[in-house]
Each structure stands twice: as C-alpha cells, then as structure tokens.
Write a protein that binds this DNA or RNA. Sequence first.
DNA 1: ATCCTCTGTAACTTTTGTAGTTACAATTAT
DNA 2: ATAATTGTAACTACAAAAGTTACAGAGGAT
Lengths: 148, 148
Amino acid sequence: MRLSTKFSDALHLLVFINVFSDIKITSDLIAISIKTSPVVVRRLIGSLRDAGIIINDPNNHQPIFAKEPSEITMFDVYLATEGHTALFEIDHDTNAECTVGGNIQEVLNGFYTNAEAAAYKELNRISMQEVIDQILIADKLKKARAAQ
Amino acid sequence: MRLSTKFSDALHLLVFINVFSDIKITSDLIAISIKTSPVVVRRLIGSLRDAGIIINDPNNHQPIFAKEPSEITMFDVYLATEGHTALFEIDHDTNAECTVGGNIQEVLNGFYTNAEAAAYKELNRISMQEVIDQILIADKLKKARAAQ
DNA sequence: ATCCTCTGTAACTTTTGTAGTTACAATTAT
DNA sequence: ATAATTGTAACTACAAAAGTTACAGAGGAT
C-alpha cells in the first residue's frame, strides 16, 4: 500500500498556520511547504475543521486554531485524519470452525487494543504547542550551525 | 492502502502449528484455517524461518517452533513480518527551504519513535505462549457456552 | 526406482486505499 | 464587477498486499 501521510501533513499544516499566522495563508502557500497540491491541503483543512481543531477566521478568511495549541494533542490530530485505521490489522476472515481461526480475532483484538492504547497515550501527551516549539528550536539550531 | 494482515496471519500460523503439533501439518491445512492460499502461508513460513522463529522439523517435514513459545514475543513476530513498516508515516518530501518543512521530519520522527516504542513494548511483553493459552481458553469458553 | 505429495519461489494479476489532478459553483476581498 | 480562493466531486495514477499460476526440487511411500 502507499502509506498515508495525512497525519504528518496535518501536523505540518497546523504548525504552518501557527508559525505564519501574521501573513495571509492560502491553501496554495501551505501546499508549497508540504510539497503537495492545494486540493490535498483543503481536504486536510476540512478534516481538521470537522474535528473542531481549526476554524476559519471570519476576519481574514484563513484557518486558525479553534483552541490554544497547548490544548490540542497530536492524538486529536491523529483521530481527525486517520482515526478510522487501526495500527495493527486483524484478519477478519478466518475459519470459524477451527479452534484457532474461530477465536484468534477476539484474542488478537485484546492484545492489539492494548498496544495501540500505549502508542495513543504517548501521542496524547504531546500538545501542538510542543510540536511548534520543537520545530522552531530545530530551525534556530540549523540556522546557527549554518552561520558558523 | 490495503492494510496488511501478515502480522495477524503469522500469529495465527504459529498458534496453529502449536495447537495441532500432533498431526501432519501442510501449508494447505494452515491455509484453510487462515482462509488464504497455501502460497501465502508458505511465504509467511519463509519470513518466520528467516527470522529464526520456526524451523523445519527434519523428522516429519513440518514447521515447528525454533524456541519455546514462552521465549518468543508478539513483537518478534511483528518484526519478522512487518518490521519494515512504521506505525506512523513521515512525509519525507517537504520543502526544505521552509521553517516548518525543513524541520518537521526530524521533529516528528522523535515523537513517532517514542509512540511506536510504547506500542512495541506492549507487544514485546506478550509471549506466544500467552497467545496460545488465551486462544485455548476462548475456545473452551465458547464450547461450554454452546453446550448449555 | 518411480510415483506422489509438498515445498520454496518467481512471475503475474487483482484489489484497494492514498494522493494527485481537473473542474467548477459559491464565497469573499478589493 | 472582478479576481482570488475555497470546498467538493469526479477521475486518474500509483503502490503495496494478497491471491493465482506455474514449476523445479526434495522426501516419503510403495
């Protein structure tokens, strides 16, 4: 399969609209940073809006955070963009007549749910503010090194 | 993408060869339980053999565990079958000229690695013996309920 | 020794979800 | 009014998984 980068691109988009909140932001502009098409950006904006993570600023017609970045976690963004897919996929078509095939789905579901919850918990600990901060720090570091 | 069920199917296969170790096991027989084709089963066997999880019993020509089921974890099986895919996919093609696009990959990589490690740690806590035990218990429960 | 079964693997096809593209009506800014 | 931009829908392109077909080679059965 082609792996989905929707989650990553949505995080990118959110950091972008925060970092460049002082200039006019269009889907074209965001698309250049993500290196994708404006339509893909608009689709992401739609998902994030549906999830209540961003709203359209009625004043200048561009997406802004619906809540403080410190109040939104990476997991909220994950749910908004890829919440329908499980991290570990159960094979739902196994032979019910068999001791193994007839019970493995529910057993794996328990283990998978547990492991997924551990990952989600980590994502839920990280706020968008932290992501923004780390990117700004990484940028300063890079520029300082380049200047040497 | 079509989500991969290789991990689930490999676990299925391992439980199967343990539960039915007293009968002659062919890839055809396993395929009936997983509801897939014998070739898919043989491919899984190949991956598990390459990873040192199973070997071919020289006596009766069928796959058996290379170590005790209590010494093999779900994570070992995950690595053998889907270890190349990340749980959270970074968009590796972003605009390096941009403050966001030029730093987001490394920042997300840190967060993703952390979240993935949490999930992997959970998988690594569960031995194949536990998976086998839970499936046998689920089967007994199901049969007891059906008999009532 | 020959036959039969099964394995391991390669090559090809089918399927399915993501991403990219094209198009356009509706909205907003100037 | 005009131009820019959005939100969607429809379509195409692409990639990965899984299924299929094929077949040489190994081992066991008789």
